[in-house]
């Protein structure tokens, strides 16, 4: 009798074992995994639970567990104000321009770099193009200021030289609709150009030789060979960017805060979702509003990434995130 009753017990224990036996079998690997795994759980996953703050009237002293729930009040307030439309419009407006200008110009630059023929010069151009990518937006703020400063800037000096009245760049929103895209291109075009250049160097020279035999000139070669061959990587880059279109400058939003020097007069043209969240938190300490906008961004952003990943997957499985 006894043996019979024991048997199912051992079976039960065995069923539970695989997890622990796997951990013990590969204990070194799991030990190596542990710090990183703990890190992403604490730094990425714990805050995901914190999104409930958007439904609270958060009080820093009471904490998440002690703060009163207010349902959708934060969102109600948000959707009634006209700020939401403005920051959403600006975020998408700039990102669409950045996407077209950034990828388009990078494609042109990459083709021109390649057509140069001189390997040393091509390398040098690539390096110089990439330099601004490594500078911070705070430094870019200084560089831009040396051009746009009303009384000392290079641009107004030039205008003065031609007898034109100085322009106060930091108090007219309309100029920033052009300045910001220019700054984005200045900083990021090198990044995309380098990626495209790598793509071009992967194209077999046979295609170009055959085209030359048929009498195609450089321009025709670019249109008929280089661009079609770069289409896969271009489409992937575009889709990846589209997935991030709800994040100002695709996540690198410091430009919207630093370049206009945090100037309130320019908000109509420079305020985006990320700067709004940041200012609500830092300047006003408005946790509820800030996290409501943050959640709005996260949820829409999540849907967009899923959609873009769906298309990437259909187009090229290896480039998909999951």
């Amino acid at each position: 009798m006894e043996t019979i009753t024991i048997k199912p017990k051992t079976k039960k224990v065995r069923r539970r074992v695989p997890f622990f036996s796997e951990i013990i079998k590969n204990k070194t690997f799991y030990a190596m995994m542990l710090p990183g795994l703990l890190f992403i759980i604490v730094i990425y996953y714990l805050p995901m639970m914190g999104v409930v703050i958007a439904f609270q009237q958060y009080n820093p002293f009471k904490g998440i567990l002690g703060s009163p729930w207010v349902g959708f009040k934060n969102f109600e307030f948000l959707f009634k104000s006209d700020a939401l439309f403005q920051i959403t419009f600006n975020t998408i407006f700039y990102n669409v321009i950045f996407l077209i200008l950034g990828i388009g110009l990078a494609l042109v630059f990459a083709i021109l770099i390649d057509s140069n023929g001189n390997r040393f010069l091509s390398g040098a151009y690539k390096s110089i193009l990439l330099l601004p990518y490594l500078l911070s937006w705070v430094v870019a703020e200084y560089l831009l200021f040396s051009f746009l400063s009303v009384d000392r800037g290079i641009l107004n000096q030039m205008l003065h030289f031609f007898g034109i009245e100085p322009i106060s760049w930091y108090s007219e929103p309309i100029y920033w609709r052009f300045i910001l895209p220019a700054a984005y291109v200045w900083k990021n075009v090198g990044y995309f150009a380098v990626i495209f250049a790598a793509g071009i160097s992967g194209i077999s020279t046979e295609y170009y030789e055959a085209a030359k035999m048929d009498g195609a000139n450089k321009f025709q070669q670019a249109i008929k060979i280089t661009i079609p061959m770069l289409m896969p990587i271009t489409i992937i880059l575009i889709l990846l960017q589209v997935g991030k279109i709800f994040y100002a400058a695709f996540g690198d939003w410091g430009m919207f805060y630093n370049l206009p020097k945090d100037s309130g007069i320019l908000f109509s043209a420079t305020n985006v979702i990320d700067t709004y969240v940041y200012r609500s938190l830092k300047v006003m300490g408005d946790f509820g509003m800030s996290s409501a906008v943050g959640l709005y961004q996260s949820v829409v952003g999540f849907v967009l990434v899923l959609i873009s990943n769906f298309f990437i997957r259909r187009y090229d499985k290896d480039s998909a995130l999951f």
Binding site: I40, Y44, V51, L295
Partner: peptide, 14 residues
């Protein structure tokens, strides 16, 4: 983690 984030405020509170 690349797809969804809790946003700035929970990160700040953490």
């Amino acid at each position: 983690c690349l797809l969804f984030s809790g946003g700035l405020v929970p990160w700040y509170i953490l």
